[in-house]
Design a binder for these strands. Sequence first.
DNA 1: AAAAATGGTAAAAAGGCTTTTATAGGAATC
DNA 2: GATTCCTATAAAAGCCTTTTTACCATTTTT
Lengths: 355, 355
Amino acid sequence: MITETGSVTIHNVAKVAGVSISTVSRVVNGLGRVAPETRRKVENAIRRLDFHPNSRAQALSRKRTDTIGLIVPDFEGQYFSMLMEGAHEEAQTNGVHIMVIKAKESEAQIEAVSRLCSEGRTDGAILMLSELYDEVLEEIGDINGPLVILDRDVNVWRLDNVLLDNRLGAFEATKHFIDIHRITKMFFVGSSKSNLDTFARAQGFSDALKSIGQDAQGRQFFGNNYSYDEGYRIAEEKIYPLIESQEHYGVVAANDDIACGIIDALMDKGIRVPEQVGITGFDDSDIAIHRRPKITTMHIPTKEIGRLAVRMILNRLADLVSEPTKVVMKARLIVRESCGCGKHNNRISGDKSVQ
Amino acid sequence: MITETGSVTIHNVAKVAGVSISTVSRVVNGLGRVAPETRRKVENAIRRLDFHPNSRAQALSRKRTDTIGLIVPDFEGQYFSMLMEGAHEEAQTNGVHIMVIKAKESEAQIEAVSRLCSEGRTDGAILMLSELYDEVLEEIGDINGPLVILDRDVNVWRLDNVLLDNRLGAFEATKHFIDIHRITKMFFVGSSKSNLDTFARAQGFSDALKSIGQDAQGRQFFGNNYSYDEGYRIAEEKIYPLIESQEHYGVVAANDDIACGIIDALMDKGIRVPEQVGITGFDDSDIAIHRRPKITTMHIPTKEIGRLAVRMILNRLADLVSEPTKVVMKARLIVRESCGCGKHNNRISGDKSVQ
DNA sequence: AAAAATGGTAAAAAGGCTTTTATAGGAATC
DNA sequence: GATTCCTATAAAAGCCTTTTTACCATTTTT
């Protein structure tokens, strides 16, 4: 009955308190009724022995781990930080833990879901799907345990869904140029076309153009990723050659990094930003505010998304909902300087302004 | 013997394969010898039933969870991302998982360690201690399970330690101004004095000043946190008034955000950066390269630290080491533009070239 | 040819908790 | 005063593996 070094079990507590283990269990979990006198004895024993219930045994017995999985393609950037922040906060207040796995490729994603859900390591998982992998959806269809899909609009039975209206977001950014700045010549710069976010944002851009009777044909440029360098390269190679000195332009970038690259590339070419070319980013990341000109961008309620995703899993575990739930969040335009609004302290002295 | 919906257990496999559960276990784990014929039968059954061993039961039986805890004060910034990146990578290749908890205050940290280690949710934990909480060290002294302390130099029996030589890092940054730029008037700007990193970096700054016979007295300024705004405020209120127009200065900032704030504040006041005042950051974060002038900064091998921390825990679990291990990593100077070196496309006009 | 070693498998014993079921002792009922 | 009903607790039955032990049937050794 005596266990090895270190671990003091419910048995030890029971022995010291002079009660049965089931009584100790009831005291620990506050279930069922326990006579005040007995409770006191047990609590003393627990304190004396510094007893901590073994969560592994609890997990086996209760058939749950009080842990939720979070599968993301990437740890970099504010998006992950904020998602984590929201998810952790909601988890924390509900006494559950977060297990994080990075899985970018479809194979790794399937593997991750399996480890978390099929093997029962977590009670549910949040899966961020930013690339177009149908095979993942197929594979996870028959996984047991609640699953929330982020970022990608899925219509699979049993899967909950939180997503951002990227199309509307880009539409609003583009509309800002049209309505406020009276600009009619616009470009869109995104990551790769296979990236779902970029694709949706390109659509929103296109929608806005259609609203003023234009076609997006030839005005959308796609790179390989969401980096500063891609933005710089595309601005230099594709956009700069199209700029005519007497015209005003607007560029809708698919994220803030790209926007920065574009700004620097154009400025390096001597174009006045935002006077001649206004630029908007997307994501409202740190750099959007720490740059001059400060970047006008679309704020994504990422923290809220993380919080909500955890909540949805918790709800499902508590059997509070039956139907698959889909929540679409909206991005919010944050007007700063790079679009042409506001002041832009930076270019005080020798404002390059070539030409 | 038949279990409820969903979960297929080792019993079911045994029954279908017509063998005992121990045989199934041996096949699954590849331990002991199994006749080829038997193995085939078991493998078929596993495939037919889509059996996944229940990790909760494994954890109880094996007395380990194959999970490592990571306790950090904050999810924001590159530091966390990179730490996560390294830790996850090392964990992944060794088949273990990462459970993340945010705990900034000492109470929360103690609680987190307890949940992870005392309750057996993880096999060990990495604890990042960036503030000076002695009570945490006292409390975790008698926790069982390997514990690696990051960032803070501890000399507690049983605790492994990975840290960065912040003092040396700041020393080198300061030395750069002295040796390369021949600057003799320097300032240091940090977060709060109770922040261990800031404190060590301030010391390094002081060391460098001593090496040229100066005293750091009155040249060190401390703010409330590591933010851009604090950098801006301190530069505006404390540093700007001290600047004389004919002199050249160097400012060693305790991180890149502060450095950015300083740069913008001084530029807003009409000071030429880096011509008249050179600035170095610390951390080599994203913004350090996406700003103009690009920020000269100290690169921290964060990913390596994360990787190493996990490795240390794994080693201890495998009983490969006995003595507490302490590893001190070095920061590396990344020379860019803000110190006065290199070109800085931004200020095309008056190329500085300090004296 | 008897004894010992070996190989393959089954049975059973943990592992530490939760939860259901059973059982004592007292209070309430008639 | 015997019967019924509660109540507080104990006992036992899972939860699902791993791992040790035991066993039988072959082989190998002496």
